[in-house]
Simulated scan of single mutants.
Amino acid sequence: MASLAAVSEMVVIKTDGTQTTPMRQPQAESYLVNVLNEAGMGNRLANLKQSLNQAFNGQGKPTGSYQFRGKPVLHASSGNGQQSVTLFFYADGSKLMLFAMGEHVSSTQYRISIYGQQGDPNFAKGKVISI
């Protein structure tokens, strides 16, 4: 599957399944900076910004056969080791639907460490996926 064209808005699906209103990149960045700070991961802001740039510019990469809500999952990632940020999202028309954030475990594995979806078999907080 090819990645999407550049988009102008992102919706964040919160851990409880509720959603934010659509946000342009600066608003999404501000929202997700707060998520990182609340998780004690404020040292990852540069990598968050780079991951958001990739996502908004249509440079999300496929995650193999993973799906969320019946849609193919894309990811955008920046950094390595303890300071990486990986965004997991799917396309819904002209919007990105962000539903999980994590970090690299290895070059092919990612831990959903920042936030995920309660009860999801692949994207709940603490899960590790292989791509």
Rank of each mutant, 00 (worst) to 15 (best):
M1R: 08
A2K: 15
S3P: 04
A6T: 06
V7H: 04
V7C: 14
S8G: 14
S8A: 13
S8T: 12
E9K: 15
E9A: 09
M10K: 01
V11I: 14
V12N: 04
I13L: 06
T15P: 02
T15W: 08
T15L: 06
D16G: 11
D16L: 08
G17K: 12
G17W: 05
Q19M: 10
T20L: 12
T20I: 13
T20P: 02
T20E: 09
T21F: 13
T21Y: 13
P22Y: 02
M23F: 05
R24H: 15
R24A: 03
Q25L: 08
P26A: 02
P26L: 00
Q27N: 08
A28D: 03
E29G: 11
S30W: 04
Y31F: 02
L32I: 00
L32S: 02
V33D: 01
N34M: 05
V35N: 08
V35W: 00
V35I: 12
E38D: 14
A39H: 01
A39G: 10
A39V: 03
G40S: 05
G40L: 00
N43S: 10
N43M: 11
N47W: 09
N47Q: 07
N47P: 14
N47Y: 06
Q50A: 14
N53Q: 13
Q54W: 00
Q54G: 09
Q54D: 10
F56K: 01
F56W: 02
N57E: 12
G58I: 07
G60E: 02
K61L: 12
P62E: 15
G64H: 04
S65E: 11
S65T: 15
Q67Y: 07
F68L: 07
R69L: 15
G70E: 02
K71Q: 15
P72V: 03
V73L: 01
S77T: 11
S78V: 03
S78W: 01
G79H: 08
N80Q: 09
N80W: 09
N80Y: 12
N80F: 09
Q82R: 09
Q82P: 11
S84A: 11
L87N: 11
L87D: 05
F88V: 00
F88M: 09
Y90A: 03
A91M: 07
A91W: 01
A91D: 05
A91C: 07
D92V: 05
D92N: 11
L98F: 07
G102P: 07
H104R: 13
H104F: 14
S106M: 07
S107R: 13
S107K: 11
Q109Y: 06
Q109D: 14
Q109A: 11
Y110C: 05
R111K: 11
I112T: 02
I114G: 01
G116Y: 05
G116I: 04
G116H: 00
G116M: 09
G116T: 09
Q117K: 12
Q118Y: 13
D120C: 08
D120G: 07
D120S: 06
P121F: 07
N122A: 14
F123P: 15
A124M: 13
K125C: 04
G126Q: 06
G126S: 10
K127D: 12
K127Q: 10
V128H: 02
V128A: 04
I129F: 10
S130F: 03
S130K: 12
I131Q: 10
